[in-house]
Simulated scan of single mutants.
Amino acid sequence: MKTQISSNKSILITGGGGDWAQSFANEFRDVFDITLVSRKQLDVTQDSDVANYFEGKQFDVVINNAGCIHPNRLLDSDSAEWIQDISVNLIGTYLVSKYALKNNQKTLIINIASTAGFNAYKDWSSYCSSKAGVITLSKSMANDGFEVICMAPGAIETKFRDKFNIPNNNIMTCSEFSKHVVDVLAGKYQSGDVLFIRKNEFVLNP
């Protein structure tokens, strides 16, 4: 894949143990300086852990990819599930962005939300709420003067999605989603833009 972006750009991707992050790193290892951090390496929900991780580190790009989901009917859910989804998906995005920008205010932040942040999917109330928060957080960060793009993908072909029985014709491959990420890295969009992305659908700032 050809890009118009400079090589050796340093990129941090949280949720680094996931299939998309691994795929992106494998595909672009010769283009970018990519650092993957998994849940075992960095607990994005803990202020002190994130602060310690970023001490002395600067990145050109930070991709907030760490996420979790607890599908459940509202009346069958419990507060622990809600707290974990909000903590990882929303507070984790806030903490990683905060400490990355403290060290380098020119860092490009790419927040991975979801189409679920726009669509009220049945039995996904905690996940939908957390991803809607990521979208508005991204817009607020951009209004504060930081360079932030929010990507809201639909289903991607990963183990994370396997258990949800999503029709194959609605699932993007990791490589298909990576093409959109590369467009962001190439400067195709403006800070504050939100990209609604499904396999056969793309909407800028829905």
Rank of each mutant, 00 (worst) to 15 (best):
A152V: 04
N26C: 00
N111I: 08
V148Y: 05
I112H: 12
V194E: 02
F202T: 10
Y121G: 12
L90M: 05
G92K: 11
A80H: 04
G15D: 00
A100F: 11
A25P: 03
K57T: 04
C150P: 01
C150R: 05
F164P: 01
I11G: 03
G16V: 10
V134G: 07
A116S: 15
V88C: 02
K98H: 15
F196M: 04
S48K: 15
S79Y: 02
S79Q: 03
S138P: 09
T158K: 09
D144Y: 06
S6Q: 14
L12R: 02
A51H: 13
N143Y: 03
E55T: 09
C150M: 02
L101E: 05
N65I: 09
G56T: 03
V44E: 00
S130M: 06
N170V: 00
E147Q: 12
K2W: 06
E201M: 10
G18D: 02
M151S: 01
V194F: 07
A66Q: 08
S97K: 10
M1R: 11
V44K: 06
I156T: 09
F32W: 12
T107Q: 00
K102T: 13
Q22D: 06
V134A: 06
D33K: 13
N26K: 13
S7E: 09
T158Y: 07
T3V: 13
R39D: 01
V184P: 14
N143R: 08
I135W: 08
N103V: 04
N200L: 13
N169E: 15
G56D: 06
N52F: 01
D30K: 14
Q190Y: 04
T158E: 08
E176I: 00
Q105V: 01
